[in-house]
Amino acid sequence: MVDYIQIAWQGLVSGFAYALIGLALVMVYKTARILNFAAGTMAGISGFLAHWWAAEQDMPFGVAILFAMIMTGAGTYVVERLTVRPLVKLGDFLPIVIMTLGVEEFLANVSLLWWGGTARRYRVPGDIDRINWLIGDFRLNAWHLVVAITTFVTLSIVGYIINQTELGLGMKAFAEDQDAAKLMGIKESTVSIWTWVLSALVGGVTGIVFAPVLFLQQDYMNIIFIKGFVAAILGGFLSLSGGVAGGLLLGELEAFTIKWAPREFAAALPVVIVFIVLLIRPHGLFTREKGHERV
């Protein structure tokens, strides 16, 4: 039994990462219909920045994170204005995707030139990432608990912003109907940019809390990005809660399939399951299919 709980917990911890990145991706896609391929790299840079402020500029842990988040937000603001904004008016999906791929490549190389390819340890106060508690036979890592708490706090804040603030209302309006939202006097460019920033901050939090787990290294968030993408699609890509649920589900799927499936299929099985789900429910698990085709 403990074995099951242990596996479920490990899956959940991976799932938190997928869920947060999935959320960040869905957020931007839902309001602006943009798929941000640079999300993983941006999240990774946030992690590096937090490390850099703390380890190389000798800032206290919390202040370093704050600085990193400010830089992430400001950087995203600039990136969105310079690269994505000029393309939005074309109304074409593909150039923006290519643009984010270009941004990804560029930022990844900036990061490589700045910090090099060698992995670094992201130190947390009291080295609590090295503390394991034994609860019966169940082993709980202290940092994993922090990851879980951070995830819930982040999700709550995002939930609050979306449901209670003007930005959230604007995001919702745009997700529903772009033209109607414009008629209501909501400025597309304002909503879009703050959605980007919010999404980057969610990504940044993910990059930072997973830095002690994965170590800070070149591209360390890229796989998390791909898994987050899969999670978002599993959730329907148009539902924020779907993206989160998709992430957690994917984490569990991975943990359990790799545990029990024959070794040959273990790596591919979660993807195959997502594939089958997609064929049965083409619009994801958590969004309803549109009523009927309008012609």
Binding site: T83, L87, M99, G102, E105, F106, N109, L113
Partner: peptide
């Protein structure tokens, strides 16, 4: 070559801006 990736990414960005199609 040290800056190859940077050049590649940068060119991609500029190219997409001037030739989105």
């Amino acid at each position: 070559q040290e800056y190859e990736g940077l050049i590649y990414g940068g060119t991609l960005i500029i190219l997409t801006l001037i030739a989105p199609d």
